[in-house]
């Protein structure tokens, strides 16, 4: 048993190694990791979107998922809070262990999972309601106790938006600028007091200044939250992430299918300065992707 546990610890740093593990040990994550993925595959119908991903996501750090488009990084991110459940054809196999519990166990309630593991999307997607109601929606449906006004204020302060919107809380959220909308979406995610925040290319629809503010916000938030971010922007990944995972697409010419695989997962510094895989190097130096 001891041996097995050691092996688990080793794989934290060497994620490419064998995904097979005994079930018992598989359910024990390292204290420092929030998620352990074991042999995760995602299919959309007959399309194999992501193959055999095994990785550990460290607590209170920013983990970036990078790679060319179509490499399945967004698909994988949506396994972290069972967002893939909403696509009827999607099928996830393998296990996503979150604090020792497999998210895909039959007893697990996807709604509870998403309360704990919040998400910020590619395009800012406010509800067509007031700023206040946007933030208050999550706490309300989840029955979070406390003074709602205080809760809204705290969430907006944490998202560095309070000073800009405190006088127009009752106005429609669509009146905000794109960057403000995205920070409001982050505040909305924070308001339900999650443990993890998943961000799916949160800056892709924003201008550089707005993006920079979101990046600053992320670095502040990691003191409290574990953040997993998918990004197209390598500089962004290099700036904000502590650990970086590089994915690529494996094209099967014969079956004309494209499958996403994990190539390398390491500290951001290693990935961006001294990657061990030639494909990673080719990507970060801009030779493909």
């Amino acid at each position: 048993m001891n041996q097995l546990t050691e092996q688990t610890l080793v794989t934290v740093t060497l994620p490419e190694s064998s995904p097979e593990r005994s079930g018992d040990a598989a359910n024990r994550a390292d204290d420092d990791s929030v998620f352990s993925l074991r042999g995760v595959n995602v299919h959309y119908g007959s399309f194999h979107a992501v193959r055999d991903i095994t990785m550990e996501i460290p607590r209170r750090q920013i983990t970036a998922l990078i790679g060319p488009s179509g490499c399945g990084k967004s698909t994988l991110l949506r396994c972290f809070n069972r967002m893939n459940d909403l696509i009827t054809t999607a099928k996830v196999s393998g296990s996503v262990i979150y604090n020792g519990e497999n998210l895909y166990d039959s007893y697990v309630d996807a709604v509870e999972v998403r309360r704990r593991i919040g998400m910020v999307f590619q395009k800012p997607n406010p509800f067509p309601k007031s700023i206040y109601d946007n933030i208050a929606f999550g706490p309300k449906v989840n029955g979070i106790k406390g003074n709602m006004d205080d809760l809204v204020e705290q969430a907006l302060r944490d998202a560095a938006l309070w000073d800009e919107v405190k006088d127009k809380l009752k106005q429609n959220a669509y009146g905000l600028s794109g960057g403000q909308q995205q920070r409001m979406c982050i505040a909305r995610a924070i308001a339900v007091q999650p443990d993890v925040i998943l961000m799916d290319e949160p800056c892709s629809a924003l201008d550089p200044i707005a993006s920079a503010r979101i990046e600053d916000l992320m670095t502040e938030l990691k003191a409290q939250y574990t953040i997993v971010i998918v990004t197209h922007n390598m500089q962004q990944a290099a700036r904000v992430s502590d650990r970086t995972a590089f994915f690529t697409v494996e094209v099967d010419e014969a079956r004309s299918s494209r499958t996403g695989i994990l190539v390398e997962f390491d500290t951001a510094q290693r990935i961006f300065t001294n990657p061990s895989d030639s494909r990673t190097e080719a990507y970060i130096t801009g030779r493909f992707g």
Binding site: Y98, G100, E101, D109
Partner: peptide, 27 residues
């Protein structure tokens, strides 16, 4: 087996079950 316990992060088991009332309503 027992000496491994301290290594667990220690959340209460099956904490992701969710509120049974809410699940009943949903059903």
């Amino acid at each position: 087996m027992t000496q491994l316990t301290p290594m667990l992060p220690g959340p209460e088991p099956m904490s992701l079950r969710g509120s049974p009332r809410r699940r009943r309503k949903e059903r």
